[in-house]
Simulated scan of single mutants.
Amino acid sequence: MESLIQLKNISKSYKKQTVLENVHTTFQKGETVAIVGKNGAGKSTLLKIVGGLIKPTKGSVTIDTSIGLPAFVVEQFPQELPFRLQDYLFHMGRIQQISKKKLLLKIEELLETFDMTEYKYEEITSFSKGMKQKVNMMQAMLGSSELLLLDEPLSGLDAKAQVDVEKAFRRLKDRGMTIIFTCHEERLIQVTADRVITIGAHKILRSQRIECIDKLAVIEADFIMNKPIRELKGKCAKVEQHGSRYTLYIRKQDMNQLLKELIDVRADIHRVEIIEREDY
């Protein structure tokens, strides 16, 4: 892959508080990168530095300017926009001084990409949260940029809306778009990301490529642990816990063995789902 963005010795402080310190990383053209970490770890700050929205206190950012200005999808999209979808996109494009002819073609392309063509004449105020998030992504992509930056793109969305956004990610990825996003949702990472950057203690703790997973099993169950949690984590791609309920992410080929172990400990299994990349 060809290098797109390079960060060297990046540090960022607000007054006396250090958010990032001596961060080094490179983003390649056409890759999809998830930035993860605990709340307050500096994920959003790193994303804003990559997008040029804020400047680092120290260090340098080198970006291939041939891709155009980054398309940044804001976390809080206005919920009460008094526009029809096509009119809003046209208005936002004209603000960017995009020619009418080019803009109309771009809008049609985006409507198709995001499965929103049938809603082009409808009021945005009538849209669901998931549809509004699609509008958020579309307005960011009206220009010619090949770099899309998103801060928590699935935040506040229900399961169906999350799947819709995931599908849009896959289409953009297949078209060669470079996508960098912050995220807590393991599913989005597993079905879209090529690489995961983990932020902690003001630094990049890990930057690891993840194998293309064709099929991943998601098991949701209630049970009281009678095995060391590290043993279970060792078998799973990720374990999420909410009280006595666990969401387990595991390769499909290992699913049956894990289900057997859960049954042996009398777990109450609520959901088993297979995520398939080819469906996106």
Rank of each mutant, 00 (worst) to 15 (best):
L53A: 03
I54P: 01
I54T: 04
I54K: 04
I54H: 09
K55Q: 04
K55M: 14
P56M: 05
T57W: 03
T57N: 08
T57S: 15
T57P: 02
K58H: 10
G59I: 06
G59E: 15
G59A: 15
V61Y: 04
V61Q: 04
V61C: 07
T62D: 14
T62V: 15
T62A: 04
T62H: 10
I63Q: 07
I63G: 10
I63E: 04
D64T: 04
D64M: 05
D64F: 04
I67Y: 04
I67P: 05
G68L: 06
L69P: 06
L69A: 15
L69Q: 12
L69S: 13
L69T: 13
P70M: 12
P70N: 11
A71F: 09
A71Y: 12
A71L: 08
F72P: 03
F72I: 14
F72E: 14
F72G: 10
V73K: 00
V73E: 00
V73D: 00
V74Q: 13
V74F: 13
E75S: 14
E75C: 08
Q76K: 05
F77V: 11
F77M: 06
F77W: 05
F77E: 14
P78R: 06
P78I: 03
P78T: 04
P78L: 07
Q79T: 12
Q79A: 13
Q79E: 14
Q79V: 05
E80W: 08
L81H: 04
L81G: 00
P82I: 03
P82H: 03
P82S: 05
P82G: 02
P82T: 02
F83H: 05
F83P: 02
F83D: 02
R84V: 11
R84Y: 07
L85I: 05
L85T: 03
Q86P: 10
Q86V: 13
Q86C: 13
D87Y: 00
Y88L: 12
L89R: 08
L89K: 11
L89E: 11
F90D: 14
H91Q: 10
H91F: 15
H91N: 06
H91K: 09
M92F: 09
M92H: 05
M92Y: 11
G93H: 00
G93Y: 00
G93N: 00
G93Q: 01
R94S: 13
R94E: 15
R94V: 13
I95T: 06
I95R: 13
Q96P: 02
Q96E: 10
Q97C: 15
Q97Y: 07
I98V: 11
K100F: 06
K100E: 14
K100W: 08
K101N: 12
K101I: 15
K101H: 06
K102T: 15
K102F: 08
L103A: 01
L103W: 07
L104H: 02
L105T: 04
K106G: 02
K106R: 14
I107C: 01
I107Y: 09
E108H: 01
E108K: 11
E109Q: 15
E109I: 06
L110R: 00
L111S: 07
L111N: 09
L111C: 07
E112L: 13
E112K: 11
T113W: 01
T113L: 00
T113R: 00
F114K: 01
F114C: 05
F114L: 03
D115F: 03
M116L: 07
M116C: 09
M116V: 02
M116G: 11
T117P: 01
T117W: 02
T117Y: 12
E118W: 06
E118R: 15
E118H: 15
Y119S: 01
Y119T: 03
Y119Q: 12
Y119P: 01
K120L: 01
K120V: 01
